[in-house]
């Protein structure tokens, strides 16, 4: 179910301005890959090209290929809506739909993508909430609005919503940066469990988090101010944090800049 991602020669633009340049990398299925790098280096932009959200921004444009197993996400007849169905995303600020109940939030993706009987929905919602470690806290108030939960709970709700549709890949854009340390830990544990079912890519500006959570780490950086971001190094997490091959990576890890 979880698929492998193969990126080749990907560049992304905002209008005429090139934001990231010629990125090629591979993400193995059922693994966690972390993207790290200083602010503005393009890691979030790159993440958003993986589920075709980049083109939603006015002027957003992509060149290159992203292969999901054997299909090019940017192929000629490919429907972006279908891509987003298979590649899910969790955002930096928790964003449950405020006018929907907790149950409806989790079921939202399901209702869009098929016709399910109430009993099926109940099962899937329960499974997703359990998978997001949220079931016990909300099982008695599934009909209350999603916005009534705490920040950490809301983010887990968003994760439940994303995994309910069984995506092939789960993208996470700084999912813990708006949360307190305890909720952060809970979500990091959750990621550890989820990676057995999904391919996960997580952008984080917190290096310790990347070291804790990921199998592989990719370091992005800008050549100079105003230049597009590039992939500097991609390797097993252990090696990146102990013995990186590129000097710039070493500088960033040890805090000399960023």
């Amino acid at each position: 179910m979880a698929k492998r991602i193969d990126v080749s020669g990907l560049s992304a633009y905002y209008g005429a301005h090139k934001a990231i340049d010629d990125i090629s990398m591979t993400v193995e299925p059922r693994s966690v890959t972390a993207f790290i790098g200083p602010s503005g280096c393009g890691k979030s932009t790159f993440l958003r090209t993986l589920n075709r959200m980049h083109e939603v921004t006015p002027g957003g444009r992509v060149e290159g290929k992203v292969m999901l197993d054997d299909e090019n996400l940017y192929g000629t007849n490919v429907d972006p809506v279908a891509v987003r169905r298979t590649v899910g995303m969790v955002f930096q600020r928790p964003n449950p739909f405020p006018t929907m109940s907790i149950f409806d939030n989790v079921a939202a993706g399901l209702r869009l993508n098929g016709n399910y009987k109430k009993s099926q929905l109940n099962d899937i919602v329960e499974k997703s909430l359990k998978g997001a470690n949220l079931w016990n806290e909300v099982k008695d108030r599934l009909n209350k609005p999603g916005s009534g939960l705490s920040g950490g709970q809301q983010q887990r709700l968003c994760i439940a919503r994303a995994i309910a549709v069984e995506p092939d890949v789960l993208l996470m854009d700084e999912p813990c940066s708006a949360l307190d340390p305890i909720s952060t830990l809970a979500i990091e544990d959750l990621i550890g469990e989820l990676k057995e079912r999904f391919t996960i890519v997580i952008v984080t500006h917190n290096m310790q988090q990347a070291a804790r959570v990921s199998d592989r780490t990719a370091f992005f950086n800008l050549a100079a101010v105003g230049q597009p971001g590039k992939l500097i190094e991609l390797d097993d997490t252990e090696r990146i944090f102990s013995n990186p091959s590129v000097q710039a990576t070493e500088d960033y890890i040890s805090g000399r800049f960023g």
Binding site: N51, M53, V56, V81, A82, V83, R84, R85, T86, G88, M89, F91, R93, N95, P96, F97, P98, A108, G109, L112, N113, C158, R161, A162, V165
Partner: peptide
């Protein structure tokens, strides 16, 4: 962010409007 949440679930433009 509410519109993006709907988009990320694989909603068409009309569905985004209807949901968010």
């Amino acid at each position: 962010m509410h519109e993006e949440a709907a988009l990320a679930l694989g909603a068409t433009r009309w569905e985004v409007i209807r949901m968010s």
